[in-house]
Write a protein that binds this DNA or RNA. Structure first.
Lengths: 145, 145, 145, 145
DNA sequence: GTGGTCTAGACCACA
DNA sequence: GTGGTCTAGACCACT
């Protein structure tokens, strides 16, 4: 859960930011099938948001099948691995679609898109060196609780 | 303005969808510096939206410098080419940033991102033929967020 | 919306009672595809519940596809008639299933079930005379009939 | 007690599921007046639930008069046959009430209700053969821990 | 301590 | 005026 950061000024609602954070934590393997996620109250405290907001995020994710709640015991990552993998796939596909659609709408050709991405990844190579943590991604995490 | 499609169920506000559509039309060269854009009333009619909504879109774009209003004569794309190019650049950069950030959050490496994009562009090569390349909206699904 | 009554003492959450009431109003044809449903605030006032509670009911029904919201204009019954009919069918099927399962668990045979239902319908024939339309509740709570 | 199945994901509290299961076992004659029921510990083990949960179920049933505890000897089904029969009757009546109310809310007429039930019983005739008739819960869902 | 429901009231964005 | 989000805090039920 280390990677979840809330941007209170973002256009995206907080509860969706929480969902995104959790989805990605699972996609990255930081949270594994069957793992317990923080209690609504705990997560609310650490993120400094209202418990209701966390609850909404959890509820929506339960609807998607990502989470399962056990009355009085807590909330858990589903053990349905195919579903988890499907979510990861879907998120990646959506990212590609958004990228390609947007750039095509701007009139870029295939080669330009590839080049744009390549140069970005290249230029970031140097930058992302010391900042591992400012972004919160890509670092292997220790076991929780 | 052919490429502007309004999705009334999308999460994104309609006035922003209009702004996006216009920005992209300019970026693509479909609308050129100094061109007259449709009157607010006309655009509202063709898009079947509330005139207030078009007005808001135009107002915001005027604030950005993209549009200029000549009282009594209509509204025009600015002739400030650097500004137009800047907008295009900004949109493209934002798209790359969103793409890279999202995929990194999912744990993908540089090579995987490149590969993902390449395969998508490859697979689309045959498919996209009839639909003019003027799609421009991320998710064709209704209602969700 | 006439049939929606809230039982604040029922075990079933209020927002679900609202959902039930609306579903049934649609099933009965009282609300038709494309109809506008009361605004969250209005319904909250008439039912004397908190607007948030109505909102939750609406949100869940939107998720089910029964409702559609148009930004700033209101909330509407979906025009997807097959879906509506499907909901009606599902509700009826679930009722039958619950009935049969429960009575079978009590050891009743087919004929007994039929007889039980017949006698109930028979005995109600006289009672239900004046109160038609003022029903819409399912709770087997005290003080009825 | 063979018929008691716990659905940990169901909306209904586990202790009530236990109560339901026991009530029905008695109603079906599987458990007879004066019979000893499993100790709280044993039942908790076989159902894989928390002993507290079984305790609560037993406590509530004792309150209803269905169970009687003989200190040091165990817990027994009451010998009060009228009370047992009353419970059975009550459960059956409640089932009928729920059924009729729900279908009426959907706008069905008496004849349609009868027909709906008849067709269901008919169609099940062939299917139910192997599974002992001891199902008793509405929605069969997976999910365990 | 866990999640679930509900209220009251605030603020925002959209049409 | 419409729905959407969020907070604060209360109370409940289950384990």
């Amino acid at each position: 859960m280390r990677g979840v950061r809330i941007d209170f000024d973002a256009a995206k609602p907080i509860y969706q930011q929480i969902m995104d954070g959790l989805c990605r934590a699972v996609a990255r393997g930081e949270l594994r099938p069957g793992d317990k996620v923080p209690s609504q109250r705990d997560l609310a405290l650490t993120l400094k948001v209202n418990p209701n907001t966390v609850q909404r995020a959890y509820r929506e994710m339960e609807r998607e099948g990502l989470l399962e709640t056990a009355r009085g015991r807590g909330t858990f990552i589903t053990r349905d691995r195919p579903l988890l993998e499907g979510i990861r796939r879907r998120l990646a596909e959506e990212a590609v679609t958004a990228f390609v659609d947007e750039l095509r709408a701007l009139g870029l050709e295939r080669e330009e898109m590839m080049e744009l991405l390549r140069s970005r990844l290249e230029s970031e190579r140097g930058i992302r060196r010391d900042d591992d943590g400012a972004d919160g991604e890509e670092t292997p995490r220790p076991g929780r609780d």
